[in-house]
Amino acid sequence: MNIQYEDQFSCPVCLDRLKEPVTIPCGHSYCMSCITDCWEQKEQEPPYRCPQCRESFSQRPLLKKNTLIAEMMETLQKTSLQTAAVECDVCTTEKNRAVKSCLQCLASFCQTHLQLHYQSPAFMKHKLVKASRNIQENICLNHGKLLEIYCQDDDQCICCLCTDNHKGHNVVSVDSEWISKKKELKEIKAACQKLIQERERGQQELSEAAKLLKSSAEEAVENIEKVFAELICSLEKKRSEIKEQIRAQEKTEIDRAEKLHKHLDQELTELRKRQTEIEKLLISDDQIHCLKSCQSVCVSPKSEDVPSFTQHTHLSFKDISISAFREVLEDVCQQQTARMYREVSNVHVAQTPEPKTPNAFWKFITVCI
């Protein structure tokens, strides 16, 4: 790794390259194992502190892998391996950095020793490539010759001596095959880029749809709370009105019953008084007195119909159909809630895609990888 990156991507605790990098709330990054061990020490108690800036946290921060730094570390590591200096194979004392590798010579050359390939006609036809440590991969393991032929039937790089085992096969030069493969790879890259753009657009649309769905759900919940609160308030009001009406009717009828009861008391008193006077006259021997008194008691009492409360058809409040009201209300609620359930179930952000069989495009990518 380049020295200029060492300090930026090293852990302040172990001073080595970040492994499983995590970032805490203050912004500093550590190896997950280093910061975990630091906070799990016996003497470490809340508040938890950053080992670098000493910022404190009342609760232990939740550690999650820093994907961005992890990817950068992986990229830098690959770049470091790819760009590692290749030494010149000709230098004897102090090894200089190689700038080119020769596929025919199977060696790497610095700028000084490479001049022979540019000046001598014997070396001018040699194929030079960027200095590489993997130059031996270009040599046939069986014959020690350069792999300069490509068998299309076997998808294999071969040397000129391997052609005996590939008679009748379609063979072309490695350069020709690579030109063809590069064209196909460019087409695949363009197709991948198109798919990436479509997927990114789909992600954006999905995020917007989810945001809209969440907003509409919040609004629907608020409306439901409001409607049901109003409905409950309305039912409470109707309950109070019906109770007041029952109590008012009860008072009216009780007052009337008491008035009638008082009137009946007066009639009973008068009737009992007359009955007593008549009984006295019947047992009296003073005929003259009885005849004079008969004039006032011989008037027949008026016979009026007295209402019978026990036989009155509307005497009880038990006939009020409260249960019927409840059944009707529950039936309406059941129908309407079932309708709302169906409407809620019909809300979808997107359909889940079904797995598809890999087509030739993806098969080709797999082969190339």
Score class of each variant (00 low, 15 high):
N170M: 05
N170L: 07
V172P: 01
V174D: 00
V174A: 04
S176F: 01
S176P: 04
S176L: 13
E177V: 06
W178K: 14
W178E: 09
I179L: 10
I179T: 11
S180A: 14
K181V: 08
K181I: 09
K182L: 06
K182N: 08
K182G: 05
K182V: 03
K182M: 07
K183R: 09
K183P: 01
K183Q: 12
E184T: 12
E184D: 04
L185D: 02
L185K: 03
L185I: 09
K186C: 02
K186W: 01
E187T: 08
E187A: 11
I188F: 05
A190N: 13
A190F: 02
A191T: 07
A191Y: 01
A191L: 04
A191G: 02
A191N: 06
C192L: 15
C192D: 10
Q193H: 07
Q193I: 00
Q193F: 01
K194R: 07
K194E: 04
K194N: 05
L195W: 04
I196P: 00
I196T: 09
Q197M: 06
Q197R: 07
Q197G: 15
E198R: 14
R199P: 00
E200D: 12
E200Y: 03
R201Y: 08
R201C: 12
R201E: 15
Q203G: 05
Q203C: 10
Q204C: 05
E205N: 15
L206K: 12
L206S: 10
S207D: 11
S207F: 07
S207T: 09
S207H: 14
S207V: 06
E208Y: 05
A209I: 01
A209M: 12
A210L: 14
A210N: 13
K211P: 00
K211E: 14
L213F: 14
L213K: 13
L213S: 11
K214A: 13
K214V: 03
S215D: 08
A217I: 06
A217P: 01
E218I: 09
E219V: 05
A220N: 06
V221N: 13
N223K: 14
I224W: 11
E225N: 14
K226M: 11
K226H: 12
